[in-house]
Every structure is written in C-alpha cells, then in structure tokens.
Design a protein around this nucleic acid. Structure first.
Lengths: 150, 150
DNA sequence: GCGAGATGCTTGTAGCGTACAATTAGTTGT
DNA sequence: ACAACTAATTGTACGCTACAAGCATCTCGC
C-alpha cells in the first residue's frame, strides 16, 4: 500500500481534529456534574453579552456564526434562568435588546475563575512566551479562517 | 494568582471557542454540497484506520475518545458504504478487526488533497516557521490537555 | 469442563447543537 | 395604504454524543 506522504497540513489538520474531540470530551465529562442548567452554547452567548455589551439577537447570531433560530432558543433558555433580560428596542418593535443581568455576570465570573485556574495548571510548564505565541497564532488562524470561508 | 495571567487565559479560551464555532460552521456549509454520505465523525475513524492500520472497534473508540456505541454506529455506516470491512478476529470471536478498503483509502486521499489545497491557500501568507510553530504548540497543548483531564 | 464474571460489540433511548423552512409581527418605501 | 422587507420565533429534521441494557463470547478458578 503506497502511502502518500503526510504534509505539514495533514499534521495541522490532525491536531485541529484532535482538539475538537478533546474539547467535546472534557466538556461532557465536566458539565455532567456541575449541572447548573447553562449549556455550553448558551454560555458563549452570555459571555458575548457581558464582554461586548447588550445587543440584538440577530447581531449576536452573526457574531457567533450561528443561525438566528439556534440563538433564539438559547437566549430563551438564558432568559428563563434569569441570566439575560430582554429590553424592548425603542427604535424597532420587532426586536429586543438582550442584556446580561447581575446574575448572569456573576455566573460567568465564577466559571471564568474556575476555568482559568484549570488553564493555569494545564499550562504550568509553558513559558509565558509560548502561551502568548499560541494565542497569537490561533487568533491569526481564526482570522484567516473566517476571512477565507465566510 | 495575578490578574494579568487570568486575562491571558481568557484570550486563549476565546480563540479556542471561536475555532470550534468556525470549524462547525465551515463544515456544515461545506459538506452540504458534496454529500457523499461520509459524515465527519465517521471520516475521522476512516482516517485513523488508514493512517495507523486495522484495529478493533474498542481500540478505535479509545483513540478518538468516543464511546464504543458511538463508534459502532459510525463504523456500521462506513461498512455499509464499502469504505471499511470487518474481518473476523481469529483470537476472539466477539471482536472484528476493522480495516479500510481500497475505496476507503481512495476516498480519504481525495478529500485530503482538496483539504490541503484549501489549507495552502488559507495559510498562503504565513511563513513556514509560523505554520510549523502553530502545529507544534497545538500538538503540545493537546498533549497537555489530554494528560490533564483524561 | 463448567459456571460465574468479565469483555466486545450492538441496540434502545435521550439530550444538545445546529440549520432550514414556515410563521408571526412589525417596519419601510413609494 | 399596501407591498416588500426584516426580526424573531416555532416546526422539523439531522448529526454527534453518552449511558444503559442486552447479547454473544471469552477467561479463569475450581
């Protein structure tokens, strides 16, 4: 069986696949226990709201590259949990402005702390420079990725 | 723990989240067209078989960090499509050895070529060094990730 | 050898995350 | 004022996943 040579792209692709699976795996293991009702995807929306301020559903959907219908359901969940509130948009009766509540901000702050401690431990043997480099390269990759396909 | 460190992890985490979403998004956009029946997750299994040789389902499942039941269904799909074949395991009547067929190898070789061309274009402005560095750091991150949680 | 427990795999079921299509309600342009 | 557009929601379907239950087979201690 003649095996084609593996290019550097294959190697990179493997690691990207691997990262997906690991992330998925760790998530399902981890959140099974601390079941506080906030799903991962919804959590991402909450983070966006806290980080970048109140905005409309449609804007949010575009930012995370999800369909509006998907985001709609996730937002509904967050509203049900009291982590996000809807404010009528004065300029458009169809839309609402979505904003994180106090409880919402508190929720992500807690998770943030736990998560960052895990990162600190996970990356304990890394140099400051390598950590920064990974972030930079990843950010650049994402930028290019986004620009290339979307 | 200093605050500067914390925000560094936040940034990294953001990019990891972003990568997930982008990957997901591009996948659904892309594979909607070339619908040849091989799902993404199943494709990963096929890659493993071609790359690392025939093996049992249970081994495969562990390698990709998925449940055996999940892998069982995906393998069944690949067998149905003629991309993988089951060979009775001479040493154990319960198990089969799974192996990629000619068609299976051909299938991933085609995809590999298309994908690598996309990568080449996507990373056209990158230096060889940066591409290699991203791969290295990512691989290292995955290793640590794997070791930390599993 | 033989029966109990372990192991390899499959099937049943359920949940999340997603997208597309259809619907409802409100807005805008002419 | 009415048609065309837009924001959001709801209906539906599918992929990926895990856990639990079941079936077939193997292994080991006796």
């Amino acid at each position: 069986m003649r095996k084609a040579e593996l290019s550097e792209y294959d190697l990179l692709n493997s690691e990207l696949f691997r990262l997906s699976r690991l992330t998925e795996r760790v998530h399902t293991r981890h959140t099974a226990k601390q079941n506080d009702g906030v799903e991962r995807a919804a959590y991402l929306l909450l983070v966006m709201l806290v980080k970048h301020g109140p905005r409309r559903l449609s804007v949010l959907a575009e930012e995370v590259h999800s369909d509006a219908s998907t985001v709609s359901r996730q937002v509904a969940q967050l509203v049900r949990l009291g982590l996000v509130e809807r404010r009528p948009d004065p300029t458009d009766g169809r839309a609402s402005t979505l904003a994180a509540t106090e409880a919402g901000e508190h929720n992500i702050e807690c998770k943030r702390r736990v998560r960052n401690e895990a990162y600190a431990e996970l990356l304990a043997n890394w140099t400051e420079q390598d950590r920064r480099r990974l972030h930079e390269l990843l950010a650049r990759f994402n930028d290019d990725f986004e620009g290339y396909f979307l």
